[in-house]
Each structure stands twice: as C-alpha cells, then as structure tokens.
Design a protein around this nucleic acid. Structure first.
Lengths: 239, 239
DNA sequence: GTCAGAAAGTGACGATTCGTCATATTGTCA
DNA sequence: TGACAATATGACGAATCGTCACTTTCTGAC
C-alpha cells in the first residue's frame, strides 16, 4: 500500500526533525531548557503531535541516545575496513569511540545519563529496548574483532575468560574513562597525560594484560596511533 | 559559642534525617517518586525548611551521592589496614568498591546519574564541589597505594605514564564495569563470567599490563581473592 | 468532483510539582 | 519577662506536564 508507506516515511522524517530540534535546544541551552512546549514551538508542531512520537521528555532523551548509538555503530562499521593486525584494529575502535565523544559531547552525556534510573524509569520500554539492541550491535563489532584475533592466533584468552569478558572489559574502561573525563576539569591537581593518549594507554595496558599480540613491548605502536588518529579525524569531520 | 554549636549540630542532624528519608523514598518507590512535598510529609517538616538545606531536588540527589562517597571513603580507609603486598591491597579496594555498589545500588545509580548534566545543571555549585572533594579523597587512597607499590619496588610505571594515569585507569575500569553491569540483565545472550570475579579479572589484567608485581602469572591470587572477599563481606555487613 | 469516514493534528485544560516569601512560631539573652 | 533574632511554615503563583475532545486534512469509492 503506497499511502501507508508514504505516511510511515513522513512519520520517520518528523521524528528526525523533532530529535534534531531537541538536540539543538539542548546544545544551546542545556538539558533542563528542553520542555515540551518549547520543542513544540521550535518545530511548529502542537504538543499533542509530539506526544504521538514520544511518551515524555525522558523518552526524547533516549531517542537522542539511540540516534547517537546508531551513529557510533556506523562509525565502527567503517572502521572495520581498516587494515592491519587485529590489535591495531581494536585500538582503532577505541580512537573512534573517543573522537565520537569529543564530537558529540551532549549525546555522550545523555548516554551516561540514560544508564541511570533517573531516566530509565520514565522512558518508554520500547525505546529502552531499542537502545539495548543498538548497544548490542556496537558490542558485536568489538566481539567480532576479538574472535578474529583468536582465529589469527594473535590472542589466546586466559583459562576462565570468555570473549564477552574481554569485550566488556574494553567497553568498561573506555566508557568509564570517557565518562570520568570531566573530572579532568573538575578535580584540580590531577596530574594526567593529555586525553588523547590516555585512553589508548589504558586500552594498551589492558590488551597487554590479556596478552593480545603483538604486545606494546614488542612493537612500537605510536606511529600507528598517530596515523589512525589522523585518518579518523578526517573521516569523522567529513560527515 | 555554645548555642551556635548546638544549632549547627541540629542542622546537620536534620540534614541527615532528610537524606535518610529521601533515600527511603527512592529505595521504595524510585527516584521519580521523590517530590519535595512528599519528603516534607515524610519528615514532618515544611517544604520551606527543606529548601533551607537543599536548593532543589537534584541537590538532594547530589547530597545522597556525597553521603555515599563518604561511605566509600570510610570503607577504603578501613581496607588500607589490610596486610599483604601492594597488589593484593589494590585488589582489596576493587572488591570493596564492588561490594559497596552491591550493598547500595540506589546510591551508585545516583553516582552515575550525577556525572551527567541532567543533574549537574541544577544542583548547587557548593554541593558539586563537595562531591568533587569527596571524589578526590577516594582517589587519594588509590594514589597512595600506587606510590607505595613504587616505593616497594613492586611497580615501575612505563615511561610516559604517571601515577594519576594508572589511578584513573583503575577507577575507570571499575566504575565503567559496575555502571554497565546492568547490561548483564538487559542485554540478552551475553556470555559473561559471574559478576564477582569479572571485575577482578579486568583489574588483574590491567595490573598485569602495567606490570604490577607479582603478576597473575607468577602467583595464584584466587585464594587471596576469596579470603579478602569474605573478610570484606563480614566487615560491610556488620555496619 | 463530491462526500463520508478515517487519520492526523491541535491547543486549551486540569493536574502536578516547583520554589518563594510574608507571616507565625520558637528560642535567646539582657 | 520582653524585645529581638533566628527559624519554621504552608499558601501561593508560576512552570511544566500529559490528555483528550474537537478541528482539520486526507483518502478512496462512487
């Protein structure tokens, strides 16, 4: 049915428009400035129409997270074409994640917020489920790479560790570090390496600990880091 | 001045009472159920009185975080008396952190939430500053241990890494992993080691990567883990 | 082209929660 | 004991929420 399809398309376009408007408001005035009335005015739709899409304000925030996760996933997809040994390619994902949070700080902030009940309690179950699904897609990219490393003989997991354990470990240290990165400004007198190499250093040590070859003691990765970094920065700014 | 002092004490006691009430409401009915009117009714104080203590609802949430961080710090203090080599003692802190989040899940949830602008935008600057200060106290316990490890010759940091880098790395992986732990329930089909050893495994690999001796390949830590775990569990349940 | 019925869009409204502040109460000390 | 300060109160106006009865637009059969 052609009418049906067109309507569906229009609905999705409007959802995008609504999310874009919401994003703009948040970027300009902060999350607390986002109100349903304001969003309605900005998009020139009535409040009732917005409620056709989102069950509440928190649902919109989750909608933004979802969008953002899909973005991240797309980036990871592109990165998977990067050539090199599996370990460099994993580093590549780490750098991608970091650049992503730098380019979309508001979205990442929401991603952190969306981990807490404060938001989850109110958002619609469907939206939360979609977020989880998107999360999993991203995780799959990491998982894949670990499996490839095993197959390539570059990684042999310790006895009781599973692929998912390492996967979650990598995710944790990256998510944690980026989420805590604010601390850099907030906590005075913290003597840290600049942000860019800091995450790589942590990932690198973790990978050394898991004995993902070639170890950082065996190869000098710094040239590779720089190359990947520049490559990615171009890639992401182009969009 | 004696009157002054007594008033100050009463003020603090009431603040504790207010926070305890708020905590109870959140625990029973969720964060969104916490309203100023409800808290007023529960504590038998008027709303105006509550606003003498907290600038808004988010400020209360941050108050709870602060409380919780102080708790964590106290736990870390106690743990620093634990005997053993520096690496086991670091593991000890990790276990302490984990048990802490298990015992106070609501508080930890708030701690995650308080990292995002959603809350930070509204809370009072003083409270946020207090949180940062408390955060730093906790970090100092980790930092100390790293320095001790260096002094004991059990740890030699890689060329460009600072004490704070490692400190933040450990904090990140722990915070990240615990914050993402929900994922365990949410994301289906994740093949993970059970929660208790999972964090220890990550920390352990990270420490191996940093070459904090004795490495996990040199010593079997599992007996120590179990001992520390039981010791701590007793310690924390006693309170 | 027209029209009836379906689908989509609207915004006024009641309800909830917020934060304030003029007033009331309590406590202090000369 | 009383004057004054400190503290507590809760009624109130403002802001925001989410709903739903109504209006407008669209659709496809005739």
């Amino acid at each position: 049915m052609t009418t049906q399809a067109r309507r569906q398309r229009e609905y999705e376009q409007r959802e995008t428009l609504l999310l874009d408007s919401a994003r703009r408001i948040i970027r300009r005035e902060g999350v607390s400035a986002l109100t349903m009335d304001k969003l309605a005015a900005a998009t020139e739709y009535a409040k009732g129409t917005i409620y056709k899409h989102f069950s509440c304000k928190e649902d919109i925030l989750c909608g933004l997270c979802l969008d953002s996760l899909r973005h991240l996933h797309a980036t990871f997809q592109q990165l998977s074409q990067f050539a090199g040994n599996t370990r460099s390619r994993m580093i590549c994902l780490g750098i991608g994640y970091q650049l992503y949070t730098q380019r979309f700080p508001e979205e990442f902030d929401l991603l952190v917020a969306a981990r807490s009940n404060n938001i989850r309690e109110k958002a619609s179950p469907q939206r939360l489920q979609q977020i989880d699904a998107a999360d999993e897609l991203v995780l799959n990219r990491i998982r894949e790479l670990i499996v490839q490393a095993q197959e390539a003989g570059e990684l042999t997991l310790p006895p009781r560790a599973t692929v998912d354990d390492l996967c979650l470990g990598l995710w944790s240290v990256s998510f944690g570090l980026l989420a805590l990165e604010h601390a850099r400004d907030m906590i005075p007198g913290l003597d840290l390496t600049p942000p860019q190499p800091l995450l790589l250093q942590q990932i690198s040590c973790l990978l050394d600990g898991y004995r993902w070859h070639p170890l950082s003691t065996e190869t000098d990765y710094s040239a590779i880091y720089t190359a990947v970094y520049q490559h990615l920065q171009q890639l992401m700014s182009r969009e």
